[in-house]
């Protein structure tokens, strides 16, 4: 993996929350790591250890209190809302534990949603790509259904399809199996494995289940906001 380029790198990243009583809670402490092109890695740690916070910072949904996040050689801290929005739109794709589909849109409209926020002309046909992804994930027959009418496993497939629509460099998945039964959860991980192997898509996945984490090649262990182990 030494030859591949770095997609994202974090240097001395801290995230602090000001609590209601005026005290400061340190959710991330001095985080340092790099994600390389084509990696499939897991961030593991107990509940409340800061995994989601880390995901949000890496995915530009939140800014670190201190430290540097470098994407494509550029420091995220120096970007404005429009620039980080562009990156969220086409550089990263999110998959969440709660699926986070919009219930009032159909499956296909959900998958196409990121395309409506792209300010530049796409170099592919979004509609065709959505059809292709639905076909590939076995949800094409549900394309005009609404999210609350399909199973959890299917919803998560929709979320993965939506994350892939804009051909992102990086998929960030925050406990993607957390709301799924064992078998369905494993099917989603199968899907990730397949995307990583055959299409070389970079995936970072948060989980607190060892069994799931062991299916990735790299595990970053986090405890109380600090990385305690990284077997890269």
């Amino acid at each position: 993996m030494k030859t591949t380029s770095s997609i994202i790198s974090l240097k001395n990243v801290f995230k602090e929350y000001l609590l209601g009583d005026g005290s400061v809670f340190v959710a991330l402490k001095n985080i340092n790591f790099e994600i390389h092109q084509g990696e499939f890695s897991a961030i593991i740690g107990p509940s409340g250890s800061g995994k989601s916070t880390l995901m949000h910072v890496v995915g530009l949904l939140d800014k670190p209190s201190r430290g540097e996040i470098i994407i494509n050689g550029k420091d995220v801290a120096k970007m404005n809302d429009n620039q980080t929005s562009v990156l969220r739109n086409s550089y990263v794709g999110f998959v969440f534990q709660q699926f986070n589909l919009l219930n009032k849109l159909t499956i296909k409209e959900n998958i196409l949603l990121p395309a409506t926020y792209c300010k530049e002309k796409l170099d592919f046909d979004a509609d065709q790509r959505a059809e292709m992804l639905m076909e590939k994930f076995g949800i094409i027959s549900k394309k005009d259904s609404f999210p609350n009418k399909i199973s959890g496993g299917q919803q998560q497939r929709v979320a993965v399809a939506r994350a892939l629509l804009m051909k992102p460099q990086l998929i960030l998945a925050d406990e993607p199996t957390g709301n799924l039964d064992h078998k369905t959860g494993n099917e989603i991980i199968d899907l990730f494995e397949e995307l990583n192997k055959s299409e070389n898509i970079t995936i970072v996945m948060v989980t607190h289940e060892m069994e799931i984490a062991e299916r990735t090649r790299r595990q970053i262990r986090i405890l109380d906001g600090e990385i305690v182990n990284d077997n890269k």
């Binding site: 949904l61 429009n82 562009v86 969220r88 999110f94 589909l101 990121p114 926020y117």
Partner: peptide, 16 residues
């Protein structure tokens, strides 16, 4: 609020 969060995660700007 949640919907706004989802849309922002998918690349919606403040202006959007």
């Amino acid at each position: 609020t949640r919907e706004v969060g989802i849309r922002r995660a998918l690349g919606a700007t403040k202006r959007d």
